[in-house]
Design a protein around this nucleic acid. Structure first.
Length: 572
RNA sequence: CGGGGCGUAGCUCAGGUGGCAGAGCGCUGGCAUCGGGAGCCAGAGGUCGCGGGUUCAAGUCCCGCCGCCCCGACCA
């Protein structure tokens, strides 16, 4: 490619709406452009990277024996009615009608369609096992699209589905996909964690996420350096503490004017937050539910959802607190509750066995000190509702857990018969009996990967692409295009690089050197050969984007040296 | 969906109290220059998000709508 003819609209400044580094750099580097919230165009450079990622995914999937198909974007409503997801998927489903008024959706995922295909064609155990996959654009009307490609409403996904005669086979497929994912993410050059996860809306028996470690990620993961345990924070159990042996002191009511938050209270009464009982009033399916937790802990609403069995809940508003409990925010507690007003009281494990607590009095501007559950008010049902914290004991070995933020780039599910049963995807087994196919499903966010890579690999000058996914492997940069000798050498190197099959770009624009260096850094080409004054001594300079290293080599050795460097960069 | 912010040139932004539409960068032409977005001269470029209202007069004040971004809950 000749830069003078290329469509690479780079920007000196980041657009104001971009916050995440990957979003800013992908826009500035001319990889993507936004059309609407969460909807992006891929420009030539962006598409090149996307295709390289896609091909790595494809190669590894094929190696694992999976077969590529291409399903449809437009899905008829009937298919989604069969699994109940036309309703369950909710507003995230993009719905539309054809000219006859028939309902369709734009596929957000393809369990329904693939199961439909397989149930029609697979009749016997002889047709199994089978793994099918596709790389296709998905549509989800996300509540909040964010951070460029990180959470988009239209995005490229690789989705795979496995079909087996029994759980043993399904588990083998699941494990095979897990290993395949590890190979894919390693080849792409990502630092990631494989963690246990919630099966969530998709359903099923078991699932793991692959999380790219980056501070801009949306997922919180906990991992144990001692035993290797790793899980999405929302499923990490937090154990009950050992009961305190402290002696119970007499209950005392104290005036706490306008002291509402845990921090204010801790300061005002000079007690540590862990000695404060925090009470949160939730409205669950329209009914008030009180959640109690230790002052130094936060409620994990994913855990709460599992305990409540519904996602239809939210914190009560100030008005609701007044109306239901007759008190104000900050002064809600389990003591002196008005009779029959609260549907249910849930205790977090963190409060187990704690003594002499600070508890709000359910009366504005008053708290109790030295309140003791069991003596001053009743214990209730205990549950694990707390967010895991850095240093909490590992559920496997007890060593302190570490917390990191990350970006979910892949997710594998052992589905079982969640889809095959309702959709009646049966096969006839060796024993002549009809049985439901046992399924698994496996997703990779292909376009999201592009952002994940950038999040893990950039500096103040721009992107640093791993060589396997870089838009070009090599840039040849003649400093002065009006210098005949320089151009002659640059052109010669360019043509020979093309002959050798190197993915190369030559910056043949009549621009100042600094300008061209800035652009090259921004778009992140891993290696460049600078052709400058030293050509008259038979030398060119090689520069490595990642390390900033630069050194002279004889012109005729430059491309050999590049190929050597490429191998090293692929290993790193 | 709850809370907050922002919409003015291609980009980043400035435009007290209502009174001629602005800057830097980019773009076009010219000059100069050629190892880190340097400089000089000249020029083009606007439905001030959209609709209504108040006013002699609205980018500015009021009402409604739309769009985009951020925090929270959900997902690859």
């Amino acid at each position: 490619m000749r830069w003078s003819r290329a469509f690479i609209p780079t920007l000196k400044e980041a657009p104001s709406e971009a916050i995440a580094p990957s979003h800013q750099l992908l826009v500035r580097g001319g990889f993507i452009r936004q059309v609407a919230a969460g909807i992006y165009e891929f420009l030539p450079l962006g598409l090149k990277v996307l295709k390289k990622i896609e091909n790595i995914v494809r190669e590894e999937m094929n190696k694992a024996g999976a077969q590529e198909v291409l399903l449809t974007v437009l899905n008829p409503r009937e298919l989604w009615e069969e699994t109940g997801r036309w309703e369950l998927y909710g507003d995230e489903l993009f719905k539309l009608q054809d000219r006859h008024g028939r309902d369709f959706c734009l596929g957000p995922t393809h369990e329904e369609e693939i199961t439909d295909l397989v149930r029609k064609e697979v009749k016997s155990y002889k047709d199994l096992p089978l793994i099918l996959y596709q790389i296709q654009t998905k549509f989800r009307d996300e509540k909040r699209p964010r951070f460029g490609l990180i959470r988009a409403r239209e995005f490229l996904m690789k989705d795979a589905y496995s079909f087996d005669t029994d759980y043993k086979g399904a588990e083998e497929a699941y494990n095979l996909m897990g290993e395949t994912y590890e190979r894919i993410f390693s080849r792409i050059g990502l630092k990631y964690l494989r963690v246990l996860a919630d099966t969530g809306q998709i359903g099923g028996k078991k699932s793991e996420e692959f999380v790219a470690l980056t501070p801009y990620g949306e997922a919180k993961v906990a991992h144990c350096e001692k035993c290797g345990y790793a899980a999405n924070a929302e499923i990490v159990p937090v154990q009950k503490p050992t009961p305190e042996g402290e002696e119970e002191k007499p209950l005392q009511k104290v005036h706490t004017p306008n002291v509402r938050t845990i921090e204010e209270l801790a300061k005002f009464l000079n007690v540590p937050p862990r000695k404060i009982l925090k009470s949160l009033l939730y409205i669950v399916e329209g009914k008030p539910v009180l959640v109690l937790i230790r002052g130094d802990r936060e409620v994990d609403e994913n855990k709460l959802e599992r305990v409540l069995g519904t996602d239809n809940f939210r914190l009560a508003t100030d008005e609701e607190i007044k109306e239901i409990l007759g008190t104000e925010r900050g002064f809600v507690g389990p003591i002196n509750l008005p009779e029959g007003k609260v549907e249910r009281i849930l205790w977090d494990n963190s409060l187990y066995g704690v003594k002499n607590l600070v508890v709000a009095a359910n009366e504005p501007h008053y708290h109790y000190i030295n309140a003791n559950p069991g003596r001053d008010f009743e214990y209730g049902e205990f549950y694990d509702l707390a967010e895991v914290q850095e240093g909490d004991p590992c559920p496997e070995c007890g060593a302190p857990l570490r917390l990191s933020r990350g970006l979910e780039i892949g997710h594998i599910f052992l589905l079982g018969t969640r889809y095959s049963e309702p959709m009646q995807a049966y096969f006839v087994d060796r024993d002549g009996k009809e049985k439901p196919i046992v399924m698994g499903c496996y997703g990779i966010g292909v376009s999201r990967l592009m952002s994940a890579i950038v999040e893990q690999s950039y500096d103040e000058n721009g992107i640093i692409w791993p060589i396997n996914v870089a838009p070009f492997e090599l840039e040849i940069l003649p400093l002065n295009v009006t210098d005949e000798k320089q151009m002659e050498v640059a052109e010669k190197l360019y043509k020979e690089a093309l002959n050798r099959g190197i993915d190369v770009i030559i910056d043949d624009r009549d621009e100042r050197a600094g300008f061209k260096f800035k652009d090259a850094d921004l778009i992140g080409i891993p290696v460049r050969i600078v052709v400058g004054r030293k050509v008259k001594d038979g030398l060119v300079e090689i520069q490595i984007r990642k390390t900033g290293e630069r050194f002279d080599v004889p012109i005729e050795e430059a491309l050999d040296k590049f190929e050597e460097l490429k191998k090293e960069l692929q290993k790193a």
